[in-house]
Design a protein around this nucleic acid. Structure first.
Lengths: 142, 142
DNA sequence: ATCCATGCAAATTTTTTGCATTTGT
DNA sequence: ACAAATGCAAAAAATTTGCATGGAT
């Protein structure tokens, strides 16, 4: 599949070694429509790679800027390939995760204000929305 | 001190039992200017309360709406008494945490857009900024 | 008196690390 | 060949849980 070919190019461009574990794990993350936990990845990887390797590989890919480590306040991390920068809306009822387009206008406005006020230089931000998805709101009304 | 008196009223208003551990831990969080880790709290609590009790108490206080559990991607949680809703700017160099006033305008604008587009009802949000504080930027220039 | 909170110990979950071996370039 | 990645096992760190006891209303 095309993803696999791409992963090697991507790893090369990022300047890190190409290994089966890396192409495999990167590919898994690239094809997932939701951010994955380490356990999610481990299940998809199967016996191909050891759990410790999965941790080290994910960490390496984050350092290389190929994955983002995000947190939904679950007590563990999730990893996501940033096809494009965006945010998430997490349903606190069913756990569904919806992608939210990044609000350049609003966030940039906030970042600029922070820099102006305290001199803090913002290099990245995290924004997660929590609430109820459409379906769960309907359920509640019954 | 006044905080102690207040904590009892606050616990009563929240409808949960008043206990030494709760007043103590709530008081600690109320007086801290930065969000505390469980370990931070444990150190301040000393031998007064068991570690398991601290976990249970913090969880209880969050459920009661008296504390907020926040996450700076450190692999553990921090707890904060929300004197008022605000955000944080975390320096990735020295770890300093600055408070950022909540940007009602911008965030509300984002939340409204999300609700309009996908019907997701936002009940709360998390936004953390990461980057370099003023001091660390100076260091870098040397 | 009754229900809830706490202490204690133990277990679970998540993540990290040392070291020998294998693999990529 | 040499540096870096992996497997394995073991440990560390963070959090949770069962159960008996103590405390709050």
């Amino acid at each position: 599949m095309q993803t696999v070919r791409n992963t090697k190019e991507i790893l090369t461009e990022a300047g890190i070694e190409i290994t089966p574990a890396r192409t495999h794990i990167l590919s898994i993350c690239m094809r997932s429509s939701t951010p994955l936990t380490v356990e999610d990845v481990a299940i998809k990887v199967g016996t191909t790679a050891h759990l410790a390797t999965i941790y080290r590989t994910l960490e390496k890919l984050v350092q290389a800027g190929l994955l983002e480590r995000i947190d939904f306040q679950e007590g563990k991390f999730r990893y996501e390939y940033p096809h494009h920068h965006h945010h998430h809306a997490v349903c606190e009822c069913c756990g569904k995760i919806e992608d939210i387009e990044d609000s350049q206008t609003e966030i940039t406005s906030i970042e600029n204000r922070v820099t102006k006020e305290s001199g803090f230089l913002v290099t990245r931000h995290v924004m997660e929305l929590f609430g109820l998805c459409n379906k769960c709101q309907q359920k509640g009304k019954q």
